[in-house]
Design a protein around this nucleic acid. Structure first.
Length: 749
DNA sequence: TTGTTTATTCTTTTT
DNA sequence: GAATAAACAA
């Protein structure tokens, strides 16, 4: 604080700048071999990781470019880098920090020539993968029904996760299905290579192949990286594990942090075993356990511990917190999904009126589809919110079209992008011409775009001829612009002008078309800002950023808004007030995971992750009925809730509660509510027992009869708020309505 | 070739 | 209910 430049230099030890408990400190300073840090939720994992990197740079004189640090999101990487810079008081240059995918892309672009790729290769997202696999399957004349593209993709993805090449399995005996998959895998990889493209899995596996097969390169990177650090190690897959081992074996300078209880990505290939058998793979590993939780109140932590304790596959540990007491965790029962949304929104609205900040509230759900009702009900109450994930900006058709043009400019071999925009906006190139072009370009051994730009096609209809000439004109001009290093913004604006992309929408002048124009303008805007912020960087850098950014990377908490996201998305975040909604069998756990106990355990970890996001208040809700798939389904409370001891939460039954609007609309109640209520087979539905009252357990129910010291007999007609702020409206025998704080309500039943 | 209608499947979760 | 694919008319 005293002087600007010398304050960091003046502090002899960076660790003086950060508060660490003894275990954390020990983990940061230990330097005698591989390290595994078990870091439970909220135990200061990020703090340890940043302190460790700062320590390595400052105390161990390791250069930033000699550190390889893999984080789970790019956002986490950015934040961590910023914190390290504050700790050591210097800007960091050259630090390898980012997601595995970003780090691998960086390495692969650097070394592209070693494996016959151009440094400006394309990165294919899930949608690109799907179109490519469909194309390949069609060429191999596979039936879409017996060999669904998605099944093919996931089988191929499994191979890639395991770093198994088509050649490794092509001659192996296998089932008919396996053999067909290998054929497709092989053709799919060939096509990717022809197009100079990599999918997400390739980024990891190609990196492994490169280091495996090129000894000189492997040595170079092994000696370059003096330290390999990995965050969220429980969510790494086999390819990532190989990569860590390739980089760190020998030196043993590897530091991984994780929590097996928060492993929630097994479904996409993550191996919980990576963390559980780390010690075997890296002999001489020193294990640290962080068990002090700094985030949640005791009530929340006890509840969360009760959730996770039912899991059988986990390393033994017990989290504890210094934050004694806290408001009781609340479990609420609602009549249906709509009332759940209305009620939660009411609770949020009333919290906001008590000066709770929107940013301190989060609604977490299992599936993206659940977000809609909450969006509606919050919007109705004018509560500001941000939805993380779902249909993201960059997934919209019009944006993807623009991006496809830009991608084609960077990599003209990218056929998937070319095919996407060949006839967008419509310029007379239909299916027939399209197919002919694909065939002829293949014969000429050129990519679609290259072929169109260089060759006059043999025989064509006049219309298509004209369209093709247009396309050629657009692309040649754009490619010239790229060669002249035009800015991304310039390039996109020029593309729009040349292609007339917006004119179709402008003529249409519908609400939808206007929204699309709006979106494209937003993209232009984003490009202008990005160009400004990243002077000297080209369009290729922009495209890489876009394709590797996750939903959470695009989320900024700076907006003062209530956050809504999936439980997966919420990992690593914290909020003072958390609603985990839709805690029902079939949703959480998801019906698709019913058969498999290990999948049930992953679902349980998902609920655990959700609960441990909460710092002060946690409310889990479930409903009796849910509108799904176009009809009403009867729902039972999540089996995970049922196994929690009832003295760890307050149960509120609001299933008799109708929001006001619905009462008004009652005469013509929508058909969905006429469905007969299924009898519930769960302890929560049992009649209310007065004995359940105790210091810690207070169970209230809508419609419940109570007797108040002063006001006499009455009935609970509504319950709102949460924690210490829970209030209930009571209709007394004399006809008066009173709103009472649950905390002080002095009554008996 | 283009833009409409209708049938069908579908929802987990994401770098 | 929504998004996609196939089928159909213009």
């Amino acid at each position: 604080m005293t002087s600007t430049t010398s304050n960091s230099a003046a502090s002899p030890n960076v660790l003086n700048n950060v508060v660490l408990n003894p275990v954390q400190k020990e983990a940061v300073m230990y330097d005698a071999g591989p390290q595994l840090v078990f870091a439970g939720a909220g135990t200061g994992k990020t703090r340890v990781l940043t302190a460790k990197i700062a320590f390595l740079i400052r105390q161990k004189s390791i250069l930033p470019q000699q550190i390889f640090a893999a984080t789970f999101t790019n956002k986490a990487a950015r934040e961590m880098q910023a914190r390290i810079e504050t700790l050591i008081g210097l800007p960091l240059k050259g630090l390898w920090i980012g997601t595995f995918h970003s780090l691998c892309a960086r390495l692969l672009r650097r070394e592209a020539l070693h494996f016959g790729y151009s440094p400006s290769f394309s990165i294919f997202d899930a949608a690109d993968q799907l179109s490519l696999i469909k194309k390949v399957a069609k060429e191999l004349q596979l039936d879409e029904r017996t060999m669904p593209p998605k099944t093919l993709l996931s089988a191929i993805s499994r191979y890639k996760n395991a770093c198994v090449k088509p050649l490794d399995v092509i001659n192996k005996q296998g089932s008919y299905f396996e053999q067909e998959v290998v054929r497709v895998y092989s053709a799919y990889q060939d096509s990717l290579r022809r197009q100079q493209a990599m999918d997400f899995d390739d980024l990891l596996s190609q990196c492994v192949y490169l280091l495996r097969e090129n000894e000189e390169l492997r040595r170079r990177y092994q000696s370059l990286f003096k330290y390999v650090l990995v965050d969220e190690y429980q969510d790494t897959n086999l390819a990532q594990f190989y990569l860590v081992r390739l980089l760190a074996e020998g030196s043993g300078r590897v530091f991984v942090v994780g929590d097996d209880d928060q492993s929630i990505y097994a479904w996409r290939g993550a191996q919980i075993d990576n963390i559980l058998s780390f010690e075997k793979v890296f002999p001489g590993t020193k294990v640290f356990k962080l068990e002090q939780n700094y985030r949640s109140t005791e009530a929340i932590l006890h509840f969360a511990n009760a959730v996770i304790v039912s899991n059988t596959v986990r390393a033994e540990k017990t989290l504890w917190t210094g934050k004694k007491g806290g408001g009781s965790v609340i479990v609420t029962r609602y009549r249906d999904d709509r009332v759940e949304a209305e009620s939660v929104s009411d609770a949020i609205k009333s919290a906001l009126s008590r000066k709770v900040l929107p940013r301190d509230i989060a609604i977490l759900f299992r599936t993206n589809a659940q977000s809609r009702l909450f969006e509606d009900s919050l919007r109705k109450r004018k509560v500001p919110y941000v939805l993380v994930g779902g249909m993201s900006f960059y997934e919209r058709k019009e944006i993807k079209d623009c991006i496809a043009y830009l991608r084609l400019c960077v990599n003209p071999k990218d056929d998937i992008s070319c095919e996407r925009i060949l006839n967008v906006p419509p310029r007379g190139i239909g299916d027939k011409t399209h197919e002919m072009l694909v065939d002829e370009s293949r014969l000429a051994n050129k990519s679609l775009c290259e072929y169109i730009c260089s060759t006059e096609p043999s025989s064509l209809l006049g219309r298509a001829q004209k369209g093709l000439a247009q396309f050629r004109e657009i692309m040649t001009l754009l490619l010239d612009l790229v060669a002249e290093h035009a800015s991304p913004h310039q390039l996109c604006a020029e593309m729009l002008a040349l292609s007339g992309y917006l004119t179709v929408f402008e003529e249409e002048n519908s609400e939808e078309a206007n929204a699309r124009i709006e979106n494209v303008n937003e993209l232009l805007n984003a490009l202008a800002i990005w160009t400004e912020d990243n002077l000297g960087k080209g369009i290729d850098a922009f495209l890489e950023e876009v394709s590797l950014a996750s939903d959470i990377d695009r989320w900024e908490q700076k907006d003062d808004a209530v956050s809504m996201m999936t439980l997966h998305c919420a990992k690593g975040l914290e909020f003072k007030n958390v609603f985990v909604v839709g805690c029902e069998d079939g949703i959480l756990p998801s019906r698709q995971n019913f058969e498999d106990e290990s999948k049930i355990e992953e679902e349980r970890r998902l609920l655990y992750v959700g609960c441990t996001r909460a710092m002060e208040n946690l409310e889990c809700s479930h409903t009796d009925q849910r509108f799904r798939f176009g009809n009403v389904l009867a729902m039972a409370p999540s089996r995970f809730l049922s196994s929690i001891s009832q003295d760890l939460y307050t149960y509120i039954d609001k299933s008799a509660f109708f929001p006001r609007e619905e009462l008004r609309a009652a005469p013509s109640a929508p058909a969905r509510y006429n469905v007969q209520k299924q009898p519930m087979t769960n302890e929560h539905v049992q009649p209310f027992h007065p004995d359940d009252f105790s210091q810690d357990t207070v169970h209230y129910r809508m419609g419940q009869q109570i007797s108040h010291k002063l006001y006499g007999r009455g009935k609970i007609v509504n319950i709102s708020g949460f924690g210490d702020d829970m209030r209930m409206t009571v209709l007394f025998a004399d006809g008066s309505r009173k709103k009472l704080m649950a905390k002080f309500a002095d009554f008996t039943t």
